[in-house]
Amino acid sequence: MEKITQLTSKTIILAIDDVDTDQIVPARFLTTIQREGIGESLFIDWRFDKDGNEIASFPLNAPEAKDRKILVAGRNFGCGSSREHAPWAIYDFGIRAVISSEIADIFRNNSLNNGLVPVVVDTETHQWLLNNPEVEITVDVEACEVRLPDGKAIPFQIEPFARHCILEGVDQMGFLLQNLENIKAFEKNRSWQP
């Protein structure tokens, strides 16, 4: 995982509520046994028409979208399945942070495990970001704030250990492995065995 301290970028706006993981990566692309190449299926049924032509009006198809690192999405982004292919595909596109007023639980955890920063802001800020497509903003993981062009800093919460892992660019597995002796002791001492 690459380290992320802060990201400064213009935004990609996807002003749709309840975007589910079946839209992000449809199930028919989950037959892969690799991590690589999943980015190609990102939003595929929204990016292309039935003949395989790019739909120009879809925000991720805008030429400038490729260079942007921050996605501002409608409320309750990432709802649905547990497929980690969803954050993998978004990451592969080049996006490193998703901002919404609400992000679904499993998607949020999967994102944190893959260096994609889930940012939940208040509804007023969220609406402002949705309404202002061409602004450059900063997502500061260290300070836990989003800085708007007028200098205003909007705080957001991120689980402290996941934040530490993103800042250091490390997987959470290391901490679990450090606890192996505790895990063994727990297994030995518990009052019943599964």
Binding site: I106, N109, N110, N113, N114, F161, M173, L176, I183
Partner: peptide, 20 residues
């Protein structure tokens, strides 16, 4: 509860997860 592939790996390797 449902988990993603990274956490599937965590459970395979340690039988535990990191959770709030």
């Amino acid at each position: 509860f449902g988990i993603g592939a990274t956490m599937v790996g965590h459970v395979m390797a340690t039988q535990c997860l990191l959770l709030r």
